[in-house]
């Protein structure tokens, strides 16, 4: 994609084509326990993370960054990207969290995992705000890309990335107020702390890419 010639509409189309596929994680046949719910959620997160890397590579400007900067951006934003995806899937389903097409959780099901009900309530509240503000699909795509491109706490210097930012401005300028709100609402601290605590208490084993990303968060915190 030649960013110097791309129109905002083409840019949004590129974001649409970069969208990851729906990930399936079958719901256990028995009622959830703390361990089985955390197992389902972490398995899902790990699969989604793999697709998130593929998504990020299709965001214009991203692969032109150094590998170091690509890692730093993904390290910073992965939980927020997972959260906004969950909120978008849940936007038309008040009171429910659509983690996956085959993993739909009611708010009260969060009672079986210590500390997660508070996070479910926060996610449901944020999703309600998205619903009230009538978040459009195009806006969701732009906000998610913005979360990635703005995520590093360090400045990432790249002309192509600046151009990507420029391309995001026109689609977002139609409703700058609500869009700023969307960015403001998506915070991952509580979710990250909860997952870390579940891992430290050995409620659920954490493997693979999810473990790498979680460890990176721990090291950054230190």
């Amino acid at each position: 994609i030649l960013l110097s010639t791309v129109s905002p509409e083409q840019f949004v189309l590129t974001l649409l084509e970069a969208e990851p596929p729906n990930v399936l994680v079958s719901r256990p046949s028995k009622p959830f326990t703390e361990a089985s719910m955390m197992m389902s959620l972490t398995k899902l997160a790990d699969k989604e993370l793999v697709h998130m890397i593929g998504w990020a590579k299709k965001i214009p400007g991203f692969v032109d960054l150094s590998l170091y900067d690509q890692v730093r951006l993904l390290e910073s934003c992965w939980m927020e990207v997972l959260m906004i995806g969950l909120m978008w899937r849940s936007i038309d389903h008040p009171g429910k969290l659509i983690f996956a097409p085959d993993l739909v959780l009611d708010r009260d099901e969060g009672k079986c995992v210590e500390g997660i009900l508070e996070i479910f309530d926060m996610l449901l509240a944020m999703t309600s705000r998205f619903r009230e503000l009538k978040l459009q699909h195009k806006e969701y795509l732009c906000v998610k890309a913005m979360i990635l491109l703005n995520s590093s706490e360090y400045a990432v210097a790249s002309d192509r990335l600046s151009r990507s930012h420029d391309c995001l401005v026109p689609p977002c300028a139609v409703r700058p107020g609500p869009l700023t709100c969307f960015l403001f609402f998506v915070h991952s601290n509580k979710g990250m702390e909860h997952l870390l605590s579940m891992k430290c208490k050995n409620v659920v084993p954490v493997y693979d890419l999810l473990l790498e990303m979680l460890n990176a968060h721990t090291l950054r915190g230190q």
Binding site: P20, H51, K57, L67, V71, L209, E212, M213
Partner: peptide
């Protein structure tokens, strides 16, 4: 630890494969 050491899978995914190659 360096980014490379702590992100072996992430590095591999960024450098080599598409998700369909990996999953």
């Amino acid at each position: 630890s360096s980014l490379t050491e702590r992100h072996k899978i992430l590095h591999r995914l960024l450098q080599e494969g598409s998700p369909s190659d990996i999953t």
